[in-house]
């Protein structure tokens, strides 16, 4: 069997007394599109943030192509350039234009020339339908547009894996579709995606695996078909009943 791109092993994360991640084991292979679902406070964001070390795990290991990312000497910068992240609140660089948001990483981290970076950024912005807005500042565009630019910024680094933390939760309902459709295209392109989401339709129709988290544990990790039609875990069933009957 080939090595997983990302492997999480016995991951634990406490915030003080609060045990947020109890014992997480989890693997991602190339081309996986994994939806992470679960109720509020179950630790979904914390898991994603631990994966790119925005949070330092309390214990346990995370491997990238078999390499321990917490080992001394491991290049965290290089790793993060390979594993992009899209945030609920976009976090576009407010001082930079749409175009510069998508070139700054290429230039500073990937050491590309400015013209090369701009050319590639434009291609990607075009693919998310934002090429018209290259001169705009983040505050001048809508939430859906911001999130598409944020996705373009992550893609500009040519990552192997993209982590999404509730990318549509901060959006007005009419803007959710445009972002989900970009994500669908990414899923179809073969990019590896880890998506924390409350969009059950996305989880069911787009992902090949669904992970249900409950109180800091992975309660169920299976195909969408099993999770949605025949969950093994009682808590999964209760959660989904609640989500789907809203």
């Amino acid at each position: 069997m080939n090595t997983p791109i990302i492997k999480v092993s016995h991951l634990e994360k406490n915030f003080g007394e609060n045990k947020v991640l109890v014992d997480i084991d989890f693997e991602t292979y190339k081309g996986d599109v994994i939806s992470i679902i679960g109720s509020s406070g179950s630790g979904k964001s914390t898991l994603l943030r631990c994966i790119n070390l925005l949070e330092k795990p309390t214990s346990g290991s995370i491997y990238f192509h078999g390499q321990d990312i917490q080992e001394k000497g491991f290049s965290l910068q290089e790793y993060r350039a390979r594993v992009g992240m899209v945030f609920q609140n976009f976090n576009l660089f407010n001082n930079l234009t749409v175009l510069d948001n998508c070139t700054v990483g290429q230039i500073k981290v990937n050491r590309k020339s400015k013209s090369e970076a701009e050319k590639f950024a434009l291609e990607i912005l075009n693919s998310v339908g934002m090429a018209q807005y290259i001169h705009a500042k983040p505050k001048q565009i809508s939430g859906g547009q911001k999130q598409r630019v944020a996705i373009a910024r992550a893609l500009s680094m040519e990552p192997e894996v993209l982590l999404f933390d509730e990318p549509t939760s901060a959006l007005d309902p009419e803007m959710v579709g445009e972002v989900l459709s970009v994500m669908r295209n990414l899923a179809n392109s073969g990019l590896t995606l880890l998506v924390v989401t409350h969009e059950m339709a996305f989880a069911r129709d787009v992902s090949n695996r669904v992970v249900f988290m409950d109180e800091g544990l992975i309660a169920e990790d299976s195909t969408p078909d099993i999770i949605f039609n025949n969950p093994k875990n009682q808590r999964t069933r209760i959660f989904l009943d609640r989500m789907l009957n809203q």
């Binding site: 965290l76 790793y79 993060r80 945030f87 976090n91 576009l92 990483g105």
Partner: peptide
């Protein structure tokens, strides 16, 4: 400056100085 700005920049691999 919003912490999210720093986190987003970290997440594309920029160093503290950058």
């Amino acid at each position: 400056v919003d912490k999210g700005q720093y986190e987003a920049a970290s997440s594309i691999g920029m160093t503290h100085r950058q």
